[in-house]
């Protein structure tokens, strides 16, 4: 199994009381799965995604990644594991404004000590695959939202992660642009076996997945298999 969350809870203290952000979550993700997470605002979708992506801690429960207990890892190893396994895609794209498209995509490789010739090859590859070679020297502000999100996904994929974690990737896009992103996800999932976990508000986008997890007040309300 790729990811396994067992009885995971996360809370914050609000005026002496525990306010649960996540409550007793049990979740299994298999390699090559495409999962959508849905739920009303504030139900803990982002929190769950961050916990899965090891960007955030939780207070109780266990988390296994490739059957290895994340809780017992040292920070350095955690950072290493996260780098190897996850690619993140954000609603607000979160590209670095001062860097060109090319440089934005290249950045994760810099942090993985990939040699410069290899970096060139990898970035060229992905630019080509995403059809944005012509845009490589532009800055994010010179791109449309859909194009920016494409760059965001390209950046997430550049280090060949096993899982893409996408938090409302189409939230800032119009429906046509959203559709394109979903097609891309589907293709990546089917052709390259990349696991995808996405948060979305749109029923139609959610339907691209094989499984929809419904969250309510930090708990899993139901799991819907498509």
């Amino acid at each position: 199994m790729l990811l396994q969350l067992k009885n995971a809870s996360k809370w914050v203290h609000v005026g002496g009381n525990k306010a649960f952000l996540l409550k007793d979550i049990n979740l299994n993700v298999f390699e090559g799965e495409f999962i959508s997470i849905m739920g009303p605002s504030g139900s803990g979708k982002t929190t769950l995604l961050n916990v899965l992506g090891m960007l955030d801690d939780f207070n109780e429960g266990q988390y296994f990644l490739n059957d290895e207990n994340v809780g017992s890892m040292k920070d350095k190893r955690k950072a290493q594991i996260a780098k190897e396994n996850f690619g993140y895609v954000f609603q607000a794209y979160h590209l670095i404004d001062e860097l060109t498209v090319y440089e934005n995509i290249e950045t994760p490789l810099l942090y993985q000590k990939v040699s410069s010739s290899e970096r060139k090859a990898l970035v060229a590859d992905i630019l080509d695959k995403f059809n944005i070679v012509g845009k490589k020297d532009l800055f994010p502000s010179q791109l449309s939202g859909g194009q920016q999100q494409l760059v965001g996904i390209a950046r997430a994929l550049i280090s060949k992660p096993k899982v893409i974690l996408a938090d409302e990737p189409t939230g800032n896009l119009n429906s046509r642009q959203g559709e394109e992103i979903m097609q891309l996800f589907k293709k990546l999932n089917e052709e390259e076996g990349v696991s995808i976990i996405q948060v979305t508000h749109s029923e139609s986008n959610a339907a691209y997945a094989s499984k929809i997890i419904h969250l309510l007040d930090g708990s899993i309300e139901k799991i819907e298999n498509l």
Partner: peptide, 16 residues
């Protein structure tokens, strides 16, 4: 701040 956050998520360590 935002840029630092992105870089951290992309795998930059503290030294970087």
């Amino acid at each position: 701040r935002k840029e630092i956050g992105i870089r951290r998520v992309l795998g930059a360590d503290l030294k970087n």
